[in-house]
């Protein structure tokens, strides 16, 4: 992978059922630009993995241990975590 390719890539962490729908616990996404909004990243992921689209609509997003809004701009090196509906207990 060239430097420019690696610069335009973000790794998304897929939890719960999204691990199955996206094919693994991590999904590497090529992006046209960074920073990128959570909403745009999710839309690009849904376009690549259409089976996950409905679940992505119900999914919260986190950076670190806090939920972030869909308007939040993701910076280079940040890792978005996808949190589908929870079912602990």
């Amino acid at each position: 992978m060239t430097e420019s390719q690696s610069d335009s890539t973000m790794v998304v962490e897929c939890c719960g059922v999204l691990e199955e729908l996206c094919g693994g616990p991590e999904y590497r996404l090529r992006l046209p630009h960074i920073p990128i909004s959570v909403a745009e990243l999710i839309e690009r992921l849904a376009a690549e993995q259409p089976a996950a689209r409905d679940m992505l609509d119900r999914t919260a997003c986190a950076v670190g241990d806090h939920i972030v809004s869909r308007e939040r701009l993701l910076q280079r090196g940040e890792r978005l975590v996808l949190l589908p509906p929870v079912s602990g207990g």
Partner: peptide, 14 residues
């Protein structure tokens, strides 16, 4: 099958 539970919301944004 995964059990579909509760959606998380930003109110849990501490």
């Amino acid at each position: 099958a995964y059990v579909m539970g509760c959606e998380l919301h930003e109110e849990h944004h501490g």
